[in-house]
Amino acid sequence: MTLPMHTTSTGFLLPSIHSAPPFFTQQPNPATQATLTEYWTKLILSYARFRRLFTLRVEDAETTGGDWDEVLRNPRINRKLPPSHLQYIISQMVTKDLAVHEPAKQTRSVLLYWRLPEEWAEVLHEWASSTGQLNTIMTFYEIVEPPIPSELSSLPISLLKKVIVILTKTARAQVIAVADGEGVRFLPGTPGR
């Protein structure tokens, strides 16, 4: 029996494993659970990228009609991911540096790395170069809420700060104090310098 793939109302194509009832149940066999966790991780990160979602909370498994409803539930087979299982998946994602607890010092909410901070650093520097922002001081707000939407639109400030640290280490950015708090000057340096 082959399981069907399904396209959600937002246009995301769910993999066929999403139609398998055991996919929504924590498995007693460690090898089986590791495989399912890997599938869940890929599904969560690809969906987050598709929808531009940056945060996942354990409570999302209990929230009907939320941003994650299409992935964490499958009404066609009457299954949903229990919060305890989502908590386990989140912990594994953090262990593999694919997410980080946000805010820190709690374990129920994460910032997802559907792009690693190093990848975001390249996106940010390329954006600064292509939009003529090199050697210009910009506030963090101007970067994440630009007048013309970009790949950086709505990027969480905590992630932006990590990305800027990466750019400062390669001499491609400099943090500057501005009236509203912090800003950054992008420099034309080269990657990996």
Rank of each mutant, 00 (worst) to 15 (best):
Pro117Tyr: 14
Ala128Gln: 04
Thr136His: 13
Glu126Trp: 02
Val123Ile: 15
Glu126Asn: 14
Pro117His: 15
Ile143Gln: 00
Glu119Thr: 11
Trp120Val: 05
Trp120Thr: 06
His125Phe: 04
Arg115Ser: 07
Trp127Ile: 05
Val144Asp: 01
Leu134Gly: 04
Trp114Ser: 08
His125Pro: 12
Glu145Phe: 12
Val123Gly: 07
Glu145Pro: 01
Thr131Gln: 09
Glu142Trp: 00
His125Trp: 04
Glu118Tyr: 08
Thr131Arg: 09
Trp120Ser: 06
Gly132Ile: 03
Asn135Ala: 12
Leu124Asn: 06
Trp120Met: 04
Leu124Cys: 10
Arg115Asn: 12
Ser129Arg: 14
His125Thr: 10
Arg115Cys: 05
Tyr141Glu: 11
Leu116Trp: 10
Glu145Cys: 07
Ser130Gln: 08
Arg115Gln: 11
Ala121Ile: 02
Met138Asp: 13
Ser129Asn: 11
Gln133Glu: 14
Trp120Leu: 04
Leu134Pro: 03
Thr136Lys: 13
Arg115Met: 10
Glu119Leu: 03
Gly132Glu: 02
Glu142Cys: 00
Glu126Gly: 11
Pro117Thr: 15
Glu142Leu: 01
Leu116Gly: 03
Phe140Pro: 08
Glu119Asp: 09
Glu142Tyr: 00
Asn135Pro: 03
Trp114Arg: 04
Thr136Gln: 15
Arg115Phe: 13
Gly132Phe: 01
Val144Tyr: 03
Ile137Tyr: 01
Ala121Lys: 01
Thr139Gln: 01
Trp127Gln: 09
Ile137Leu: 05
Val123Ala: 08
Leu124Phe: 05
Pro117Phe: 14
Glu118Pro: 00
His125Ile: 10
Met138Pro: 03
Tyr141His: 12
Trp127Cys: 06
Ile137Ser: 06
His125Ala: 12
Leu116Thr: 15
Glu122Pro: 02
Thr139Asn: 01
Ala121Leu: 01
Trp120Lys: 03
Thr139Phe: 02
Trp127Met: 07
Ser129Ala: 13
Glu119Trp: 02
Val144Phe: 04
His125Asn: 09
Arg115Leu: 14
Trp114Met: 07
Leu124Ser: 06
Ser129Glu: 11
Pro117Ala: 14
Leu116Asn: 07
Asn135Cys: 09
Trp120Glu: 10
Ile137Asn: 03
Ile137Gln: 02
Asn135Tyr: 13
Ser129Asp: 08
Pro117Val: 14
Glu142Gln: 06
Val123Gln: 06
Trp114Asn: 06
Val123Arg: 04
Gly132Trp: 00
Trp114Asp: 10
Thr139Glu: 02
Glu145Tyr: 13
Glu145Ser: 12
Thr131Pro: 05
Thr139Arg: 00
Glu126Ile: 08
Val123Lys: 03
Ala128Cys: 09
Trp127His: 14
Met138Ala: 11
Glu126His: 07
Met138Phe: 08
Ala128Asn: 07
Glu122Lys: 08
Ser130Tyr: 00
Val144Ser: 04
Leu124Gly: 06
Thr131Ala: 10
Ser129Pro: 05
Met138Leu: 15
Ser129Gly: 09
Trp127Tyr: 10
Glu118Ile: 15
Glu118Thr: 15
Ile143Phe: 01
Gln133Cys: 09
Pro117Arg: 12
Thr139Cys: 01
Trp120Ile: 04
Tyr141Phe: 12
Glu119Pro: 00
Leu134Val: 04
Thr139Tyr: 02
Gly132Asn: 02
Thr136Ser: 12
Glu119Val: 07
His125Tyr: 02
Leu124Thr: 15
Glu126Cys: 13
Thr139Leu: 00
